[in-house]
Design a protein around this nucleic acid. Structure first.
Length: 459
RNA sequence: GGCCCCUUCGUCUAGCGGUAAGGAUCCCAGGUUUUCAUCCUGGUUACAGGAGUUCGAAUCUCCUAGGGGUCACCA
């Protein structure tokens, strides 16, 4: 059974890069009927924050990615790590290093000055003398001193790194708290992970973790290193790139399934298919189709995907969702017509809300340029007569209104613009927008009359 | 700097030795529409460069260039 995980550290909000690797892991687990686990990497004393943790959980909730079982916190598992460290110590695969931080820094500086790569020199690797007083030791793992560390990456292919690139790195700090590369390997093993999907930036951690696996005689999971997502300029995503916090996408009016659809296509493909429902993503996702190269974030495409998902959403579901954007039309008896008249003009929930409000609320002001262009000497008379026709004939559907308009115009031998342009200004305040027949049908004849009268008075 | 990874239209990508290098987005043009939008049709634009291997390379190999990642008692 496939078991994957997402393992964020609670030091900030969830950004889209993290969300994408989480998505890949989640899809792969769901696709193969396996499990997707969530683990919080909070071994760093100072940098954790509860708000960040909450934000991450909230983001998962919003996009609808559910994890199996309980959330695992590394900070609550120190006793487990301790067992493994003791075993390593006992078996001689790890050792205590009494070098102080100052000594280490000095060593590093000396190496750099000589143009060498900073690297622990292994001075306590086989130390058997009396340890210096007053130094709490760190624990280092014995990494291989020659040969290659190799593995088959599910995305990048065969990776081979010289053992000299990995030194005897610290697995427990002097205060006893274990470090990242060690606990990751332990937990990935303990949690029964079969597939580790993570960002490209972890590629160099993998050989270190392999050292841990080997020292403990554990079987390796399959690794997949997914390339980064860059900003629109092709540079690394940063806070300046606007909405990198996943929850920002909600406030900006994106659908979670659209965001996921956008992200899944960043680095993964299924032939020429662009639009995926959640179910399709799960059905079709295979890590073998993950792309090797980095990709750039593209807002235009996200917008297009979002608009497409919005159009595909069932109306009652959309009406329900609108409520969370402070736009409740659920009790309006023309709610379906409202949606039909606006959904095509909106790429986000925010734009949809604006379009709806534009129709439902009488215009507060009129575009002066449009007024100048559309209002002629006979406009008032035409509008008034049209209102009269509306009042007497009482059309009750947009089709009937449409027919009435045409009849009105042909009877007077007028082009559509003579009535349509000023009428649109009266109803919306501007020259463009939803269909007039639809608007009149939605707001009703009385409101139409009121808006027309208001424009006549104000001109 | 050492090491590792990456490189097809502006962007996301298909391609896995033989294609007029395909799709999507963006942009432009035309059509549908009472306007706008949607929708439909069409169009411009790409194999980073150079050597090889091969009858034949976007696909395989090497070199160069560019980009990225990483070198902590952070994760």
């Amino acid at each position: 059974m496939v078991v994957t995980r997402f393992a964020p550290s609670p030091t900030g909000y969830l950004h889209i890069g993290g969300l994408r690797t989480a998505l890949f892991s989640w899809l792969w687990a769901k696709h193969s009927g396996g499990k997707f686990l969530l683990r919080i990497e909070d071994t760093d004393l100072a940098r954790n924050s509860d708000e960040a943790l909450e934000a991450i959980i909230k983001a998962f909730d919003w996009v609808g990615m559910s994890y199996d079982g309980e959330v695992l916190y590394q900070s609550k598992r120190f006793d487990i790590y301790k067992t493994y460290i003791d075993r390593l110590l006992e078996e001689g695969n790890a050792y205590k290093c009494y070098m102080s931080k100052e000594e280490l820094d000095a060593l590093r500086e000396a190496q750099m000055a000589k143009g060498e790569r900073p690297r622990y020199d292994g001075r306590y690797r086989d130390f058997e003398g009396t340890p210096p007083q007053g130094v709490e030791p760190v624990i280092r793992i014995k990494a291989p001193q020659s040969g290659k560390i190799e593995f088959e990456d599910g995305v990048k292919g065969f990776i081979s790194i010289d053992a000299s690139e990995v030194d005897d790195f610290i697995i427990a700090r002097s205060d006893g708290v274990p470090t990242y590369n060690f606990v990751v390997a332990i937990d990935d093993h303990e949690m029964g992970l079969t597939d580790v999907i993570r960002g490209d930036d972890h590629l160099y951690n993998t050989p270190k973790q392999i050292v841990v696996y080997r020292a403990l005689g554990l079987a390796l999971p399959k690794f997949y290193h997914v390339a980064m997502i860059n900003n629109e300029q092709g540079k690394k995503l940063s806070k300046r790139d606007g909405a990198t916090d996943v929850m920002e996408y909600k406030t900006q009016g994106f659908l979670p399934e659209a965001l996921l659809n956008f992200l899944v296509r960043l680095g993964w493909s299924h032939g020429d298919q662009e639009i995926f429902t959640l179910e399709q993503m799960i059905e079709l996702f295979e890590p073998s189709n993950i792309n090797k190269s980095a990709s750039s974030y593209n807002l235009d495409k996200l917008l297009w995907i979002n608009a497409t998902h919005m159009k595909n959403m069932p109306t009652d579901q959309m009406i329900e969702l609108l409520k969370s954007y402070d736009c409740d039309i659920s009790t309006h008896d023309k709610k379906e017509a409202i949606l039909k008249a606006t959904i095509e003009r909106a790429k986000t929930m925010i734009e949809l809300k604006e379009q709806i409000e534009l129709i439902l609320n009488a215009p507060k002001e009129y575009d002066s340029k449009a007024v100048q262009k559309a209002f002629k000497a006979d406009t008032k008379e035409i509008l008034s007569s049209f209102i009269e026709d509306l009042m007497t004939l009482q059309p009750s559907s947009s089709q009937e209104i449409h027919a009435l308009m045409n009849a009105f115009l042909s009877a007077r031998e007028l082009g559509f613009g003579k009535l349509g342009q000023p009428l649109r200004i009266a109803l919306l305040g501007a020259m463009s927008g939803s269909g007039l027949d639809e608007i009149i049908d939605i707001i009703g004849i009385d409101e139409t009359k009121a808006r027309v009268q208001r424009v006549i008075e104000s001109i």
